[in-house]
Computed example of a mutant assay.
Amino acid sequence: MNYTQQTAYSDPGEYAVLLDPLPTNIPELTAVIRNLLIHYRGGGIQFTGERLEEINHRWIDALLATDQRRNGTPLTTPRAPEDRVAGCCRDYALLLVSALRHQGVPARTRIGFATYFQPGWNADHVITEYWNGDRWVQVDGQLEPGEHWGFDVQDLPAGHFRSAAEVWRGFRAGEIDGETCGVDPTLPFRGGWFIRDYVFLQLAHLQGDELLLWDGWGAMADDLSMDLTPTDELAALLLAADAGDEAAATKLRDRYREDPDLHPGERIEVRSPSGTPPYLVDLATRQKLPWPAG
């Protein structure tokens, strides 16, 4: 995949002109991203109603449309926290990817788990990777840089963020307790099934379908009652591709295109943390559809 090209999800559309004047260096660019977004759970503001529904912005052009309706100013103009668009780690990562691709820089979102939010906890997380001409650099654009992290959040050291495939391998080997992997220790969204679903999310994002973390399709499930061998094989291919194996990357691309269980179809299932009942979305028309009866 050509990671300099916008996808249906990262494309700023009519708002591309807003990206033209953005800085090209990572510290300043990530500061712009944090000026536009606020985490719906960790931003210190309790969002409800339509404001909470902002977390379901699946497409960057829709996210920028919301910002412009509310603020109507250049993206570098300071916004008060309450005027920022409510989102999550995926939105910080994808908006940064959109800005980098707009500048011709190869960039992609990565799905996995971070070890640096709570001791002993592997928090589900999305970060950005960009190609600096020599290697893929991992950036957590959601985080304000600071010495208190103990590492550079704009060039993450190995091990601080692990891909879903890497965590799945550790889980299957008995090296990682699945109960320490998920959204939050106080919530039921954790465990082996959660890691498995994130392997499919990781693949989708790498193939240019940068969907929401609560979108569902195909082989995803909330248990581990199925044959896990195909997931093991998929994770192995993802890890090999990350290590530079072009044959593995090609096999992943082909399997993703050919296997309907691996990629979203025309419609996806949405179980949003905004509290709305589950529903479907037509990805072509962007229309919200009712959940099937029965």
Rank of each mutant, 00 (worst) to 15 (best):
M1N: 08
Y3R: 06
Q5H: 11
T7C: 07
A8S: 09
S10M: 01
S10E: 00
S10H: 00
P12E: 05
G13M: 09
D20K: 03
D20S: 05
P21F: 01
A31F: 02
N35L: 10
L36I: 15
L36R: 05
R41Q: 09
G42L: 07
G42P: 00
Q46E: 09
Q46H: 05
G49A: 10
L52Q: 08
E54F: 00
N56F: 01
R58T: 13
R58I: 12
A62E: 15
A65L: 11
Q68R: 11
Q68F: 15
R70L: 13
L75R: 02
T76F: 10
T77N: 10
P78G: 10
R79K: 13
A80W: 07
E82W: 11
D83R: 15
A86E: 03
C88A: 12
C88L: 07
C89R: 06
R90C: 03
D91P: 02
L95C: 02
S98G: 10
G104C: 10
G104I: 12
G104Q: 08
G104E: 09
V105L: 05
V105A: 04
A107M: 12
R110Q: 13
A114C: 15
Q118H: 11
P119L: 13
G120L: 13
W121I: 03
W121R: 07
A123C: 13
A123S: 14
H125A: 15
Y130M: 14
Y130H: 15
Y130N: 05
G133W: 04
D134S: 14
V139C: 15
V139I: 15
G146L: 14
H148E: 15
G150L: 11
D152C: 14
Q154N: 14
D155F: 05
P157E: 06
A164P: 10
R169T: 09
G174D: 02
G178S: 08
E179R: 11
E179Y: 10
T180V: 06
P185K: 07
P185M: 10
T186E: 13
W193M: 04
I195F: 02
D197N: 14
D197Y: 00
Q202W: 03
A204C: 06
G208C: 06
L212C: 09
L212K: 04
D215L: 04
A219T: 08
M220A: 08
D223S: 11
M226I: 11
L228C: 06
T229L: 12
E233V: 12
L234S: 00
A235I: 06
A236I: 01
A240R: 13
D245T: 04
A247S: 10
K251R: 10
D254K: 10
D254C: 05
Y256N: 01
D259M: 04
P260D: 04
D261M: 11
L262N: 02
H263I: 03
H263M: 07
E266R: 12
R267M: 05
I268S: 02
E269T: 08
G275W: 07
G275P: 05
T276G: 01
P278N: 11
K288H: 14
P290M: 08
G294R: 09
